[in-house]
Design a protein around this nucleic acid. Structure first.
Lengths: 358, 358
DNA sequence: TTGTAGGCGTTATCAG
DNA sequence: CTGATAACGCCTACAA
């Protein structure tokens, strides 16, 4: 800013009143004479006055900003959607969001949190928190915190997802279509932290729902049908994991008739492998995704367990506001449910028992 | 913030020195006695002092923030990647980014810009600018501005893309594979503004490259093979446009052997339509995308003209910094080139002339 | 109804 | 080498 913008004083001089009067006009509170008000409003227009949020924050001890630390939103649209929802709900309440991609690193996350503290954001939202130390820093600063989808500590508000129910709905759908030989491609519970409010981690819930569903119809678990790993391959960009897993499954002597995946990105890889070997979906094999992020743009359109992404963000922001308005309020936990969206990637089990291709 | 955090004064008292001395220690400039410095550092630690960015900004007239207005980044990963690049490059230079999704509305865009002005960001980056009035507001405030990919006014720095060359590379690839009956699915030039630095708009460049490529090998333009529209369907979420266009093309008496699309999202829709009718890619038909965003997760992996997303963001931030450092500097224009990435969706033209299916 | 004055937490300029 | 002290722009009692 070379030419510094007008201040309250400039406006006051222009209108021939004091700064206090201008402030009163702008804050729309307090008594101001009609004629004076008009003069001030005219002066505001003429000077092109814009309040200085910095000065205001310094004075009021409120910045009307929210810090949001997210996992890499370029890797998974899930994070972009949640971030968007937080941004939107924040704006609706007068808040601007600082978005910070923690980049899969504890150190980055901490750096982001330090930024937030120095900039005195009114609250911090995590999708996901990584490092308990980040949370500890915020606790020390007595700042409101909300954790989304994964909770590392019990002392903040959190919005979680009932992944078990979601996965169960997906599995029920496959079972109902007659599938019994169903594979699982998903995140490895051992690579992801446990929840401290729910009995199981996100990954455990999804995997358990898979196991339980099969057991409920008397099908034993075939460990060869279960692939656990990372959602993304860090080195080669997106999508190698699901592809590799699916290739392996398709090589089995008796291949599965359906695949339940723990993420749309993994499902996308599975679709690629299936396409490559020339099998048709859902004619030869059915696939269910999770998250409902890229599901709509894949071929065929993917049946997927939809995360409540908009609600996740919106609720998190509401919980943050509640804490801001009353710092003494007890942390709350909200649990949302995913919902199965049926599209074109699931169909009845093939009538002829599938044989090894080739 | 209930319990207000320690200030310079608190640290000073703790260390038994003045605020000025503490400030000197923290700014790592000026002379401070070794013993004093140690005492101050210890006091900083004990009090858990964090500088207040608001107070600092007020004093220094610099916020070390950048405002970034973007098109809906949940609709197209292109925007998420550019935003991420700006964020990353900003952080590397000590800047935090305010991200603002303008949501396809001029009014929202202006609201975002007003936010940026009130929060006194040091510069504003647009991916894309929509409303000339937004730019005018920033001009009035004498704030540095950078426009990415589309430029509405000539008076700011800009980072543009040579779309013609990119599209030409894609077309050359198809021609070289023997394709002559090539369709075009892309953005309608009439729906998008012109550039004020380049002779043609983004959409015109891509379309002209298509036409020119065909002309260069003596193939006349078949207008039935050209579909122009919006990149996304606003109502039903993503991806209806490319799907519909492709369905129409596949109904033609003599269908195309290859499709050149103006966007990966459109290409994804084309793949869905192709899949649905049971044709194979690239055996029956080849498809080229644009942007290289979702290309890697589609089946088959999409050949696509890659936008230099990371460079776009990085360069924009550098141009912004240049303006911040020297407000008198003349606006610069940088033009980057896309690059064709060949994957599995393009292959030789089928030997037998394709006939109408069914 | 309007004006005065003090302070929010820094930085920067002067003295000492 | 260190300490006062004056802004930065705004809000808000309190006084007039």
């Amino acid at each position: 800013m070379k030419l510094k913008s007008a201040t309250l004083l400039d406006v006051a001089r222009q209108a021939g009143v004091s700064r206090a009067t201008v402030a009163r006009v702008l804050s729309a509170g307090g008594y101001v004479g009609d004629e004076t008000r008009l003069r001030v409003e005219e002066a505001v227009r003429q000077t092109g006055y814009r309040p200085n949020a910095m000065a205001r924050s310094l004075r009021t001890q409120r910045t009307f900003t929210i810090g949001h630390t997210t996992s890499e939103f370029t890797q998974n649209p899930f994070f972009a959607h949640v971030a968007r929802s937080i941004e939107r709900e924040g704006l609706a309440n007068g808040y601007k969001t600082f978005l910070y991609n923690q980049d899969g690193s504890d150190a980055h996350e901490r750096a982001g949190v330090e930024q937030f503290i120095e900039r005195r954001v009114d609250a911090v939202i995590f999708t996901y928190p990584r490092d308990p130390q980040s949370l500890a820093m915020l606790r020390a600063a007595a700042m409101p915190v909300v954790q989304i989808e994964r909770d590392l500590t019990p002392d903040t508000s959190a919005v979680l997802v009932d992944n078990y129910t979601g996965a169960a709905a997906g599995m029920a759908h496959l079972l109902q279509l007659g599938h019994r030989r169903i594979a699982f491609i998903g995140g490895d519970p051992r690579l992801n932290p446990r929840s401290c409010r729910r009995p199981r981690s996100v990954e455990e819930e999804r995997l358990d729902a898979y196991r339980d569903a099969l057991s409920s119809v008397g099908v034993g678990i075939d460990e060869r049908l279960i692939w656990l790993g990372r959602y993304y391959e860090p080195d080669n960009g997106i999508n190698i994991a699901g592809y590799r897993a699916m290739r392996t499954l398709l090589e089995l002597p008796e291949r599965p008739t359906a695949i339940f995946t723990g993420c749309d990105i993994l499902a996308a890889g599975a679709l690629q492998a299936t396409y490559e070997v020339g099998l048709r979906i859902p004619d030869d094999i059915s696939v269910v995704g999770f998250d409902d992020t890229t599901a709509r743009i894949l071929a065929p359109r993917l049946t997927s367990v939809a995360q409540p992404m908009a609600e996740l963000g919106k609720t998190a922001l509401q919980l943050a506001l509640a804490q801001i308005d009353d710092p003494e309020i007890a942390p709350q936990t909200v649990i949302l449910s995913p919902q199965l969206v049926i599209r074109d990637s699931t169909g009845p089990v093939p009538r002829l028992a599938p044989t090894r291709r080739g």
